[in-house]
Design a protein around this nucleic acid. Structure first.
Lengths: 333, 333
DNA sequence: TTGAAAGCGCTAACAA
DNA sequence: TTGTTAGCGCTTTCAA
């Protein structure tokens, strides 16, 4: 059998309680601590997770909840990046805080939703990180009120013990617009994200503000985030005004769509028309020309979410956070 | 406080042991069972996960391990699909088997690798599902020998208590070739996956066998799975023989690359040249023309992996599994 | 600073 | 078929 705390105690010549104290940072004499550490090393002792949870009341588990209809799931690289960020913050300090494990809770149908209700038990997880930034997601309301939640994205209905980690969309939108202004564009257009996406609206608003009178209101169209959205929007814009010399897009995918249309129309990018994307997805660096775009620190959002949860559980005061975006200048603008 | 098994027992007028028995499927009278169920419903009782693990020796957790260098992670939709498949099999039967939760273990650097060693403790997880089908992955060797493992993909070094769930690559390769044969192609070519990928090799081998003498050995080139690989390979093939009238690709991404080259060269698909992809990724249905390709049941691989683990833990005899691929005929061939 | 002891909520062996 | 009881391995009072 694996060594228990009792074995360690015996070997170190102290009581079980003392071993527990060095494990959890209680008051112990230097001498005892050393002998316990030696005993731990010698026995290869590792705390029994369930026993610790049962006695201590902490599970050492965070739940990462992704509620997304089948299909959408993981098409979007965002989830993977968020998970990476979270995972990077889960390693425990040597003998202070134990490692936290991440319980992945996927909700794609009713059955999984009911299972999630059972899994999201305060005795089974210490906290929840919500990865799906859905508006009106019923999941939030059904989580046990005593469970702390960090939302990666926006929070529409307030909830106790709930914090959100978001991206500064307005700042990102403004940065792109300002870059265009510096380049001296005369006739800019905007391809905004879908009207249902709050972040998209905030970006557009900031772009409008920044561009001011230079922007012809007719040259703002909304489209879905996919490349196809960019294609359609760009075609429409070109009809409305063939003289457009710059386009701010709501996503990199829209930007490639717009790029394609522009190229097909015989225009050159960025000479005839400058294009700015949004997201700084991986492929943005390899389009031709490479996309100037706005970087969103998605992985960092996940990391901050995990740290926020940890801080709260440590008893610290925590608050909502907004992470900065940054302009990445490549060749398209 | 949440109700405990003791509360349920009291309300049902039975002993704690009896409640435990109805929860775990022991011998109980019909009458007791009913009263216990009623009491559970009334109290809203839910078993304490850690307590159960500690006493029962089963954690009710499977670990999904993805060991992949930073960057590759989740670029590939495969992981998401596998996780979906696994997740779909985790719901427990009402009062027979409890829900299993999925612990996501991401390994992208040394720190995470060490943490994984600690997380993959037989007392903390009941089994492991390995999602990264890496050859020579050191992780397999470092997993506690008492922990059962199911690998989604191929297994190179045998290990006790380890099973693999794979795709029938040979069958898929043959199916594509046979389809071409039926269409009466005269001059087929093959763009194989990278030489380092075993599955790719197996597919190519099956294709060669099926095509027989019809295949000019010079018309087989290997390339990476990306679209760029398809582009380069197709260009090379066209140089070697401009008369090619069909191409079997190793991936859908390669197929779009090849498609692009073919279209640019003024050929029409499928009239001048037929193209068959592999994978049946989401976008394969929306290229123009839509791709005829080989479907791989990735989600099903995950599901089978989870079921295999569950069956083994139930004490059943389990074995390696190979899942069938299927030809999806669209317009490109 | 320490040991002793009382649980945490559950399963399983045992006797009835 | 049932109740009783002894743990599972740990944390946390409580005295000392």
């Amino acid at each position: 059998m694996k060594p228990t705390i009792e074995d360690v105690a015996a070997l170190a010549g102290v009581s079980r309680g003392t071993v527990s104290r060095v494990l959890n940072g209680g008051p112990v004499s230097r001498a005892s601590a050393e002998r316990v550490h030696a005993a731990i090393a010698e026995t290869g002792y590792r705390a029994h997770h369930s026993a610790r949870s049962l006695a201590g009341g902490r599970s050492g588990v965070y739940a990462a909840v992704i509620s997304e209809p089948y299909g959408e799931l993981f098409e979007d690289p965002t989830f993977g990046l968020l998970l990476r960020g979270i995972s990077s913050q889960l390693t425990g300090a040597v003998h202070t805080s134990p490692d936290v494990s991440l319980s992945l809770v996927l909700i794609t149908d009713e059955e999984e939703r009911r299972r999630a209700d059972r899994l999201l038990d305060p005795r089974r997880v210490d906290g929840v990180i919500l990865l799906s930034p859905h508006v009106h997601d019923p999941i939030l309301g059904s989580i046990d009120p005593s469970l702390p939640v960090v939302v990666c994205g926006e929070l529409d209905e307030p909830r106790d013990l709930t914090w959100s980690v978001t991206i500064d969309d307005a700042h990102g939108g403004a940065a792109g617009a300002r870059h265009l202004l510096q380049r001296g564009v005369r006739c800019p257009a905007i391809i905004g994200g879908p009207l249902a996406a709050r972040g998209a609206l905030r970006r557009v608003h900031a772009q409008q503000t920044e561009l001011g009178d230079l922007l012809d209101p007719a040259l703002l169209v909304h489209a879905n985030y996919a490349a196809s959205g960019g294609v359609e929007a760009m075609r429409e814009l070109l009809v409305r005004d063939p003289g457009i010399d710059a386009v701010l897009c709501g996503s990199d995918r829209q930007a490639v769509g717009a790029l394609q249309v522009l190229l097909e129309s015989g225009r050159s990018v960025p000479d005839d028309v400058a294009i700015v994307g949004f997201d700084d997805q991986r492929f943005a660096a390899t389009t031709s020309p490479p996309l100037t775009t706005i970087n969103q620190p998605i992985t960092e959002v996940g990391a901050v979410a995990a740290r926020t949860l940890a801080a709260h559980l440590r008893g610290e005061e925590v608050s909502d956070q907004t992470l900065p975006t940054s302009l990445v200048i490549r060749s398209s603008a």
